[in-house]
């Protein structure tokens, strides 16, 4: 990104979701990304079997946020032994919903000409942070006041060597928006909001003290079960 350009949303490195041992020679590694508002599952399919693989298809089990493939898995040519291909599957969030444990767990079935294989993976909840998640200042103040203290969760992020402005810019790249910043007793307090694809708002206070690499994040949400996942995204975004 150039000067003044927003950084892209954080996307974790690919990990192996289906080892070849469990996929009769099919290995799948993958990650999730949000690019220009589109959630994508990015996978590498590798044929470690001795015969050609064809007829790929994918299905998701119902999940917490209704993630579903927005189209078929596009593997247009047969996958030869020792061959790898990169596949990008656009997702939407209008599929069937069922609360998962952990909340961001996704159960996937992939078939080819050999068999059907099942695996679970976890997506960073930041994939679901929408581009219009900047709350009006007045609404933020009223909502912050309105949400009970019981729905506030506090977390710490250690070893974070960023200024509050750098942190704010990084978070904005993942659709976590800073609404106000105040400095009290040498501590920067950033008030931030983010909105999930299903309309859940998360309000945050990020505390950054110059020279102290430990940040404190306080999250307030009417659905406090999302706070742990949102915190994990804060940590991943700020540390990558």
């Amino acid at each position: 990104a150039g000067v003044g350009m927003p950084m892209g949303a954080y996307s974790p490195p690919k990990t192996v979701w289906l080892p070849a041992m469990k996929g009769k020679g099919l290995e799948i590694s993958g990650t999730f990304a949000r690019r220009a508002g589109v959630i994508q599952m990015e996978m590498t399919l590798t044929n470690k079997a001795m015969s050609v693989m064809t007829d790929f298809a994918i299905q998701f089990n119902r999940n917490s946020f209704g993630l579903a493939p927005a189209g078929p898995l596009q593997v247009l040519t047969p996958l030869s032994p020792n061959q790898s291909i990169e596949v990008t599957l656009p997702l939407n969030t209008v599929g069937p919903v069922m609360k998962m444990d952990p909340l961001n767990n996704l159960q996937v079935a992939v078939k080819n000409n050999i068999d059907v294989f099942y695996f679970s993976c976890q997506y960073p909840i930041s994939m679901l942070f929408v581009e219009d998640g900047k709350m009006e200042r007045q609404v933020f103040l009223a909502t912050w006041k309105d949400i009970s203290n019981d729905n506030e969760a506090q977390f710490q992020i250690k070893d974070c060597h960023l200024s509050s402005d750098a942190a704010s810019n990084k978070l904005q790249g993942s659709n976590i928006f800073t609404i106000a910043k105040r400095t009290v007793d040498g501590q920067d307090m950033l008030y931030q909001s983010t909105k999930l694809s299903n309309g859940i708002w998360v309000l945050a206070e990020l505390r950054v003290q110059t020279g102290n690499p430990t940040f404190t994040v306080c999250l307030k949400c009417r659905a406090p079960e999302v706070s742990q996942c949102v915190f994990q995204s804060y940590e991943a975004v700020l540390k990558n």
């Binding site: 007045q138 103040l141 912050w144 105040r182 400095t183 009290v184 007793d185």
Partner: peptide, 20 residues
């Protein structure tokens, strides 16, 4: 005036959170 009020409200919020 509204903007001034909101600025002030955020300052009060930050203050109250730091020194409850």
């Amino acid at each position: 005036e509204l903007e001034d009020g909101l600025d002030e409200a955020f300052s009060r919020l930050a203050e109250s959170r730091t020194n409850p």
